[in-house]
Nucleic acid binder design. Structure first.
Lengths: 133, 133
DNA sequence: CCTTGACTTAGAGTTAACTCAAAAGTTTAT
DNA sequence: ATAAACTTTTGAGTTAACTCTAAGTCAAGG
């Protein structure tokens, strides 16, 4: 016995807007979302799981186009499991590199902050001198 | 004796396009770029240093608007050194948190990759069985 | 002298990823 | 039963950060 959810409930659970949920479906990120007798969307718990997976991909900077690619492979069934895993592993590597770059640039900025502090001290000394004059 | 550079040379050094250099100047990221007798831009080594600093801010995900804010403080001189340092420290903290989040999400994806591998094995066993039938 | 190519400007066009609006049908609360 | 709050669709609008185009000026090479 599956319990189905309305678009609003899914929006609350996933923290996406109802707009975005419809948009994701339209561009092919979500497929075969069920409908009730009036054509209202009914989301299953598998749909939620999939949306949460997408959210994680997004949180690691994957583009919508890349996600659509994976969604299309998924639609083709289990024979694409290997292809999907390869894409995921590539993405994993890319993000690891991104994190390393980010940390490197951040360390350089930390050094800049030190320089700011030095310059501040010099500036303050100059101001103090002015006061004394 | 300063040596001045053309926009094209600066584009090569900084890896920004000439378009982008003009755009950055237009929106207030770069100020007081010198001009020669024909109105051609002449960049100084301090300009290059500043552009490279901006590039580092960008590499750590700072928005153009935030960078403009810092550029405007810089234009106001040394009295804004403290304000600028505070902004930088805030940015530093934010990026550290971003990196932590990114790593957390990436670890969750790594787990998903393991699951893919398990599913692949099951699928392959299924296929093998079909062959044997 | 003429063409090639770097430079100038103002302003239009692009891309990603939403985000909203309008018009109409449906469900719920009173 | 009727108003408020949901849902639907199509298609237009938004934002950031570029990116390009057109129309023009200027200097150097053949």
């Amino acid at each position: 016995m599956k319990k189905l959810l309305t678009i609003r409930q899914v929006a609350e659970i996933t923290k996406l807007s109802v707009h975005t949920l419809r948009y994701y479906e339209q561009i092919g990120l979500l497929s075969s979302i069920g409908r009730d007798k009036n054509g209202y969307r009914c989301y299953s718990s598998e749909d939620i799981t999939w949306i949460e997976f997408l959210t994680r991909l997004k949180a690691t900077g994957m583009s919508i186009n890349k996600m659509i690619e994976i969604a299309e492979l998924r639609r083709q069934g289990d024979s694409t499991l290997n292809a999907r895993r390869v894409l995921m592993e590539e993405h994993y590597q890319e993000v690891q590199e991104q994190i390393a770059d980010l940390q490197k640039n951040l360390d350089l900025l930390a050094h800049k902050i030190v320089i700011y502090k030095e310059m501040e001290t010099i500036y303050e000394l100059g101001q103090k001198k002015k006061c004394e004059e």
